[in-house]
Design a protein around this nucleic acid. Structure first.
Lengths: 249, 249
DNA sequence: ACCTGAACACCGTTCAAGT
DNA sequence: ACCTGAACACCGTTCAAGT
C-alpha cells in the first residue's frame, strides 16, 4: 500500500549513479557535493526520507564517510538552507542592488524567492523552520548578504533607517506566509513522518459544513500566483506611503 | 556542554509524576491524556525531544502501550495539532460567529490565534508544517469548524462568496507569516535536531556588513506586537475596501 | 482489559582499523 | 589521504505473552 505518487527513497546500499561519472575514476567526496546531493535527495524524496546512510548510498559511500566533511546532520541541513538562500544570487532577474528603483528591486527579489520556493517545495520549509543565527536574520532572507543588500538598497533609495528595517520585517513575513502556504498546498511535508492520503475525496463529512460545501470549488481554486502578486503590490504601496511620509531631509 | 537554558528531556524509564495522582490507583491510559502529555512534552522540551519511549515514561508506561490509543507517531502529532487548533475555541475572547461586526470578529480571532501561538511556541510550527487534509484547509485555521465559521461569519456580514474566500486566504497567510516569524525568534525549533548557540555574540563578522552593523540595535528590537497590530489593521482595511466594492444586492 | 518483553529493522555518530 | 567495519545508544513499531 505505497502511496502511488510518492517515490520511495533508495536503499542505503544502492548507489544511485549520477549520469556522468566515469565508472572507474573514484572522485573523492567534498562538502559541496554532499550538500548538493542532500538537496536533490530532499527534492525527490522529501525531508523525511533523508538519512545519513541513504545519502551516503546516493554518493556511493558509507554514511560514516560523510562525517569527514559535515559535522553532523544538523550541520548538513544548515548547509542545505544556505545553498537555497544562495541560489537566489544566481537568478539573473534578481540583483543585490536596485537598478530601476526600489519597487522594481523588491518585485524582482520577491519573485526570485518565490521561484526558489517553487523549485524546491519540499526543502523550502527548512528555510522557514531552522532557528535563525541572529535575531536580525529572518527567514526567508536569512543571510547577512541579503539583509545587508536589502537594507542598503532601501536606504540608498530614500528610506529612513527605521522605514528600511520595518520594510525588511514586513517583506519577510509577507514572503514567509505566502510561500509556506503555497508550498504546503503542493504537498510539501516537514513533519517527522510522511503520510499523505492524496485522495481529496469528499467524504460526505462536509454535510455539517454547508458553507464550506457551497464554496468548495472556489476554495480549491489555485489562485496562488495572483494572490502573491496582489499582496506584493499592496505591500509595496504601503511601503511607498511610509517612505513618502518619512522622506529624510 | 549542555546549552544552559535548554532543559534535557527526561529518560524514558523515569516516570515524571504529575502532582496529583494517587500513588496506588492505576488510572488507565486514554487518548486525550496521551495527546495532552505529548503537547506538554513539546512545550517543555521541544519537538525534537519527543519520543514514543520518553512520552511513555512521562505517563508511567512503556512506549508500546501508547499504540493501543494512537496508531503511530504521525497520528499523535496530528492529534496535537488538532488540540492546538481546538484550544482557540476555549478562548473567551474568541467566538465562532461575529457579534459586533466582522472587523471585531477578525480582530478577536487573530489575537486568539496569536495567544495560542505564543503559549506554545515550540508546537506552533507543527500547525504550519503538517500537510493539510484538504486544499481548502489552510494553516493555521486548519479545521473544518473554523473554516466554516470564518466563511459563514463573513458572508453573513455582507461579504460575497468570492470576497469571503479571498479573505480566508489573506487572513491565513497573514497569521502564518507573522506568527511563525515571531515564534521562531523565540527560539522555536522544528528541525530534526536541536542546536542553538544562544549567544547573540557579535563576532566581528559584521565588519563586512556595515548597514546591518549600523542598524543592529534597531533590527534586534522586539516590535512583534506592534507589527502584528499594524499589519492586521492593514489587512482589515483592505478587506473593508473589497467588501464595499462588491456589496451584493 | 490493559500493559509489557523481546524482537526487528532501522537511526546518528564514534573510532580504531584498513587500503 | 580517504574510506570502512564494527560497535553503541538510541529510534518506531509489532506481536505473542503476561497479569
Amino acid at each position: 500500500m505505497t502511496p502511488p505518487d510518492r517515490a520511495e527513497p533508495p536503499d542505503a546500499d544502492v548507489a544511485v549513479v549520477a549520469g556522468e561519472d566515469p565508472p572507474s575514476a573514484r572522485v573523492p567526496l567534498d562538502r559541496p557535493r554532499i550538500v548538493a546531493a542532500a538537496s536533490s535527495f530532499i527534492d525527490e524524496y522529501g525531508l523525511t526520507g533523508l538519512t545519513m546512510r541513504r545519502l551516503g548510498g546516493t554518493l556511493g559511500v558509507e554514511a560514516m564517510s560523510l562525517y569527514a566533511y559535515v559535522s553532523g546532520k544538523e550541520d548538513l541541513l544548515d548547509a542545505v538552507v544556505d545553498a537555497l538562500v544562495a541560489e537566489m544570487r544566481r537568478d539573473d532577474a534578481v540583483s543585490l542592488t536596485p537598478s530601476a528603483g526600489w519597487q522594481d528591486y523588491l518585485q524582482r527579489l520577491a519573485h526570485g524567492v518565490r521561484r526558489v520556493a517553487l523549485a524546491h517545495p519540499r526543502a523550502f520549509p527548512l528555510v522557514a523552520s531552522r532557528p535563525p543565527e541572529a535575531p536580525w536574520l529572518r527567514p526567508p532572507l536569512r543571510s547577512l548578504e541579503w539583509v545587508e543588500a536589502f537594507l542598503d538598497g532601501l536606504t540608498s533609495e530614500g528610506f529612513t533607517d527605521e522605514a528600511a528595517v520595518s520594510g525588511y520585517r514586513a517583506f519577510s513575513s509577507f514572503l514567509l506566509g505566502h510561500l509556506l502556504l503555497e508550498v504546503s498546498t503542493m504537498g510539501a511535508d516537514l513533519g517527522p513522518l510522511d503520510v499523505l492520503d492524496d485522495g481529496v475525496a469528499d467524504p460526505e463529512g462536509l454535510a455539517d459544513y454547508p458553507t464550506v460545501q457551497r464554496l468548495r470549488d472556489r476554495l480549491a481554486e489555485d489562485r496562488a500566483g495572483a494572490e502573491f502578486e496582489e499582496a506584493l503590490e499592496e505591500l509595496l504601496n504601503r511601503m511607498a506611503l511610509i517612505r513618502a511620509e518619512t522622506l529624510p531631509g
